[in-house]
Amino acid sequence: MLYSEKVMDHFRNPRNLGTIDDADAIGEVGNAKCGDIMKMYLKIKDGIITDVKFNTFGCGSAIATSSMATEMIKGKPVTEALKLSNKAVVEALDGLPAHKIHCSVLAEEAVKAALFDYYQKHPELEKPEGLSDCAACSGGCCSCH
């Protein structure tokens, strides 16, 4: 099989699928031209991600990595969510085929883009070092991966 059972499970039964109308932060990464776009919606209270939802246009692994990433940051402090790496997402899914690794990078970037949006909206908070706006990346996934 192309994908692990875990990937297929998250693809078939995506966790946290949907949107949040009154989201505190939104991040969108990817490019329709390249075939995948992820959009993440966060509710944040007292520095904790209390709710997260996603919408994804993309292949099986794009949907599965989005789903897994939302599970991994839900209920976590923002500072911890910032540390989410694509590698951790891949490991949690029991691996991805080599040519699908970029989907996990996109999932990491979607979380980072949403958190960047959060810090933009809250200038009173000290923005963590190195947090950049993945959503503003002009090239989309094709040029990065």
């Binding site: 078939r12 390249c34 995948d36 993309g58 292949c59 099986g60 794009a62 040519h99």
Partner: peptide, 29 residues
Amino acid sequence: GIEGESLLLLLDDRGISASSGSACTSGSL
């Protein structure tokens, strides 16, 4: 508004074998 590989996987779950010209099914970008 949708991508071909996820379409194929879900159709496969419903017993339909088909194909797509999406990048993800071709293994390229």
